[in-house]
Amino acid sequence: MTHLIDIVLLTFLVATAIAIVRLNSLFAVVMLFGIYSLITAGVFIALDAVDVAFTEAAVGAGISTVLMLGTLALVGHRQAPQQHSRALPLTVVVITGVVLLWGTADMPRFGDPEAPVHQHVAPRYIQDSPAEVGVPNMVTSVLASYRGFDTLGETAVVFTAGVAVLVLLGRRRRQHRDPGSSGD
């Protein structure tokens, strides 16, 4: 049953992605991207990643879409029709895709409990974290305790990006105001 839901949602994802490629209206592309993120959150639920799913629904489908709509309001919805031939990008994409698909032949089967990814530190997190950290949610234990420095690095990246956005857009607002105060 879970596999069926997974397959149906993934098929929806493919359809949404194809629509994003084919549509020309930027507004429609951005809204479809919001839908795409929400379906991704659904797939994460089907794959047992509940924490990731609500983060994706809030941050990916929510904040990203709002940011893109805000940008569209500033830069306009117009998208020039494609002038270049599509042959070169298509060739590059198809070749890369075929190489990647070739790589899946060596990957462990989906859901295999014996896959190498489940053999290293994950068993320790699963068995010991409830006793060692005392939080029932193992994702929280790993995020905040075992890999706390990763999370510290993440906040550093988010802080840097926030400062950079403020620097870029704050400068623009100043320049908007200056000619405004002298010109009007």
Binding site: V52, G60, S64, L67, A122, I126, V142, L143, D150, A161
Partner: peptide
């Protein structure tokens, strides 16, 4: 496996920060 979930949680938040930039 909780480990990929943790890595991707971090990646989603970093991803929206880079998107904003």
């Amino acid at each position: 496996n909780p480990l990929p979930h943790v890595l991707i949680l971090t990646a989603i938040v970093v991803g929206v920060a880079t998107t904003a930039l």
